[in-house]
Design a protein around this nucleic acid. Structure first.
Lengths: 100, 100
DNA sequence: CTAACCTACAACCAAATGGTTGTATCAACT
DNA sequence: AGTTGATACAACCATTTGGTTGTAGGTTAG
């Protein structure tokens, strides 16, 4: 979970995720739009891949990057769990008020 | 947003968040339960505070830590936005299939 | 008032992060 | 076969991170 949130804690990586929804962009095509070297973008994609946020599929001599919603869902559930603890507090407060 | 996700990318910080829902635990009380120095926990709380995930309220000589659901909601919305792009893709695929 | 407790903050250190360049591999086009 | 394009990966560097210890400032209890 640490690594999942870490992967999301970078604007470039989140942008890559957004653009990879259709899975039709190669690493070099993605890299062309960022103000950094190809290798740097390659590393960002690797970080996303290691936590399962994207997968790569070969097409000819390029690798297409596709974002995977599964991992995204895992992150959302972790946030939901945190929020749920908070909702539980609201309920306890309501219960207290109802006792009056 | 980078710093928000970064703050969430640490198990100790997420645990502090969970335990601070009721806002009744002081920094030192929190710190007592982690295998690290008081100063280290203090730093974790500071990270959470800087992105608005918790606030501190004085009670006597201690500072009570309370988690703030607002910031959590911001993170969730960012994830929702990413997932929405993906749902849009599903819809486009469905539309294509319907054309047949 | 003094001692004890809670917090803040600085200085320091090892390890990880995010970037670079350079080299190697591998597929495809002519 | 040789060249070009796309990717992988290592080595290196500056900065940040996550931890430590030590010092100092307030606040409460006795």
């Amino acid at each position: 979970m640490d690594r999942l949130f870490h992967a999301l804690a970078d604007a470039t990586r989140r942008d890559i995720l957004r653009r990879s929804v259709d899975g039709e962009l190669s690493v070099s095509r993605l890299a062309a739009d960022y103000p950094m070297s190809f290798a740097a973008v390659q590393k960002h994609v690797a970080v996303l891949e290691q936590v399962g946020l994207v997968t790569k599929v070969r097409r000819g001599r390029e690798l297409l990057v596709r974002s995977e919603p599964e991992a995204l869902r895992r992150a959302r559930e972790a946030l939901d769990q945190l929020e749920e603890a908070w909702r539980g507090r609201i309920q306890r407060m309501s219960a207290l008020l109802d006792e009056d």
